[in-house]
Design a protein around this nucleic acid. Structure first.
Lengths: 328, 328
DNA sequence: CTGAAAGCGCTTACAG
DNA sequence: CTGAAAGCGCTTACAG
C-alpha cells in the first residue's frame, strides 16, 4: 500500500510537506492541490499504527462491559461509539462476563493499546479493589461504582429508583413485597438498600434473595420462591435480565399478573411493554449514560487535575398493568 | 511507561533479547528469568502500535454491521468477538445504520487501520457495487450477500426459511397471506422470493409490502394494511425489528392472535416466546454465523488463493401460538 | 543463544 | 511556506 514517501515523490515535495497536508498544517494552496492529487492517484491512506506510535496519542478508548447482549449495555455501547467516532476516536469493546480475571486481562490489553481512556462497568471485584489512579489512563465507571466512592462515574440513582418502585407498589396496595437482586455488582447492593429503606420506612419486612447474573439463576430462584407457601404478593426484580427469568417462572407457575402476583423491575426493554398486562419498570436513560460517560472522559483528558465526580442520573418510572392497584 | 530499552538495561541484556522473550524466541532459561523479573519490576507492557508498525500485521479485524442494537447483530457480534480474542485478534466495531456513506467511511478507516480482514453486513448499495477484491484486505459478508454472488459469505437460507414459514401457515389452514419485507437489504429480497415461490406453488397470490428498516416504518405499514377492508388473514414478517412494529400495530388495532390474524416471522428474540400466544419464528443460528464468519476469514488469510465460498445455514422453525391451526 | 544495526511509516522540532 | 534529520518502540534479518 502506498506510503507517505510515494506521495511525496509523485508530488515532487518532501515527506514533511505531505505530513502537513495530512494534518492541515501550513501549506501553500498550490502545493496542497498537488499533494492531494498524488494522494488520490495512489489511493493513499495514512497508516494509523505509525501515526499513533510517533504522535504518542492513540485516540482510542476502551469500553469494558459485562456482556454486550445485555440490552442495557447494548444501548450504552451504541451511544458511546457514536460519541467516540464523532470525536475522532475509536473504541475497543470487551466483554468480561463479570469475570474478574477477564477484566484484569482486558485492562492489561488496554495498557498495551496505550488507550486514551477507558469506560468501565467494573465487576464487583474491581469495584472494590481497582486502583483507578495507577492504571496509567483515566477511567470513567458506568452502572457500577467503586466501594470507596472516589473516581469518575456515571450511575443511576439506584437507591432512589428501587425505593420508587417500592413506593409505587405500596401505593397500589401491595404489602407483602419480595425483592430479587444480583449478587455480583454494586448495582444490586444499592437497589437492595433502596428496597429495604422504603419498606423499613413503611414498617414492613423486606424479604430479599440474591442470585448470580443470569436468566437461568433468576428463573430458578423465582420458581422456588413462588412454590413456597408464604410467597410474596409482589416482586421487585433488580434488572432486565432477571426480569426475563421472572416472567418465565411466573408463566411456568401458571400465575396471572397482577391478579396472583404483582411485578415491577428495571430496564424498559422493548418486550416489557408488549407482554400482557405490561410490565412496570424503571427506565434508565441509556443514551444519556453513554454520552455522559464519554463527555466525562473527554473532560478528564482536558483537565487531569479536576476533582473526581459522580454523575447520578434519575430513572423514570413507567407504570404498567403488572402493578395495577390491588382490589380487595 | 517503561519500554523495551528500560527492560534491557535493567536485565543487562540487549533489546533483541527482550524482544525474543516477548515473542517466545530462543532464549536461555537463565536470561529469560532475568528479563521476566525486569519486566515485572517495571510493570512493562509492550506497545502494540510499535509492534504492529514494525511487524506489519495488526491482528485486527473490522466488524461492520447496520446496528449493534439489532439483537441479531448483537448476538453475532458477541460470537465474533469471542472467536477473535480466542485467536489473539481484536475487533473494531462499526455501525452503518444502512447508510452507504457511513459504510464507505468505515471501510476507509479499515484501510487506515491496516486490518487483517473484515466481516461485513453490506448495505444494499455496497452489496451491489462493492469490489471485495480491491479493498486490500479479505472480506467475509454476513447476513446479506452481494448481487453477483461471488466473494466469501455466511448467510441464512432465506428463500427456504421464508418458504418454510409460508408452508407452515398453509398447513395451518391459512390462505390469505401477506408479507412485509425490508427494502434495503438482499435479505429482504430473498425472503420475499421464497415467500412468492411458496405461495405460487400453492396457486395463491402473494401480496407484499416493502418498508425501510425501522420499527416505526413497520408499525405504520402494518397499521395501514390492517385498516384496509381486504386485509390478509395471516402475516409473514421479514425480521425481528419489523416484528416488534407489527405486534405494536396489532395491539393498537385491538386484534387478537391468532383469532383475528395469524403471525409468523424471523428471529427468535427472547420476547417472542413471552408474549401471548407466543410468536412463530424462524430462529437463526446466530452463534454459528459469527463463528463461521470468523473461521472463514481465518481460512482465507491462511490461503488467499482458495476459491470463494458461501456458507448457507438453515434456520429452525419455532412454531408457537400465533400461527395455531385455523378452526373454521 | 546473544547483540548491533536497520527500518516499519509516520510526526515533530529545527533550520532556512 | 518548505525540507532534512531525528526518533516513536518495537521486530527482523544478519553476524557471531
Amino acid at each position: 500500500m502506498a506510503k507517505i514517501k510515494d506521495v511525496a515523490e509523485l508530488a515532487g515535495v518532501s515527506v514533511s510537506t505531505v505530513s502537513r497536508v495530512l494534518c492541515n498544517g501550513p501549506v501553500s494552496d498550490k502545493v496542497r492541490k498537488r499533494v492531494e492529487a498524488a494522494m488520490a492517484k495512489l489511493d493513499y491512506r495514512p497508516n494509523l499504527a505509525a501515526r499513533r506510535l510517533r504522535s504518542q496519542h492513540t485516540d482510542t478508548i476502551g469500553l469494558i462491559v459485562s456482556d454486550i447482549r445485555n440490552p442495557f449495555f447494548t444501548a450504552v455501547s451504541r451511544a458511546v461509539e457514536d460519541e467516540a467516532y464523532r470525536n475522532g476516536m475509536r473504541v475497543i469493546l470487551c466483554n468480561t462476563d463479570e469475570d474478574p480475571e477477564k477484566e484484569a486481562m482486558y485492562l492489561k490489553l488496554m495498557r498495551e493499546e496505550r488507550v486514551t481512556g477507558v469506560i468501565l462497568a467494573p465487576t464487583r471485584h474491581s469495584a472494590a479493589a481497582l486502583d483507578t489512579e495507577s492504571l496509567g489512563f483515566p477511567v470513567v465507571m458506568i452502572d457500577r461504582t467503586p466501594a470507596q466512592g472516589d473516581g469518575d462515574a456515571v450511575v443511576l440513582d439506584n437507591r432512589r429508583a428501587a425505593a420508587q418502585l417500592v413506593e409505587h407498589l405500596l401505593a397500589a396496595g401491595y404489602r407483602d413485597i419480595g425483592g430479587l437482586f444480583g449478587n455480583t455488582s454494586s448495582t444490586g447492593a444499592e437497589r437492595h438498600a433502596g428496597f429495604v429503606a422504603a419498606l423499613d420506612h413503611a414498617g414492613l419486612p423486606a424479604p430479599a434473595r440474591f442470585v448470580p447474573p443470569s436468566v437461568e439463576a433468576a428463573e430458578a430462584a423465582v420458581s422456588a420462591w413462588l412454590a413456597e407457601p408464604d410467597r410474596p404478593r409482589a416482586l421487585l426484580i433488580s434488572n432486565g435480565i432477571f426480569m426475563l427469568g421472572a416472567v418465565r417462572a411466573i408463566k411456568a407457575a401458571g400465575l396471572c399478573l397482577p391478579h396472583d402476583l404483582a411485578l415491577a423491575g428495571f430496564d424498559n426493554e422493548v418486550w416489557t411493554g408488549l407482554i400482557d398486562p405490561g410490565l412496570t419498570v424503571i427506565e434508565q436513560p441509556v443514551d444519556e449514560i453513554g454520552r455522559s460517560a464519554m463527555a466525562m472522559l473527554l473532560a478528564r483528558l482536558e483537565d487531569p487535575a479536576r476533582s473526581h465526580r459522580h454523575v447520578v442520573l434519575q430513572g423514570k418510572l413507567v407504570p404498567r398493568g403488572s402493578s395495577a392497584p390491588l382490589r380487595q
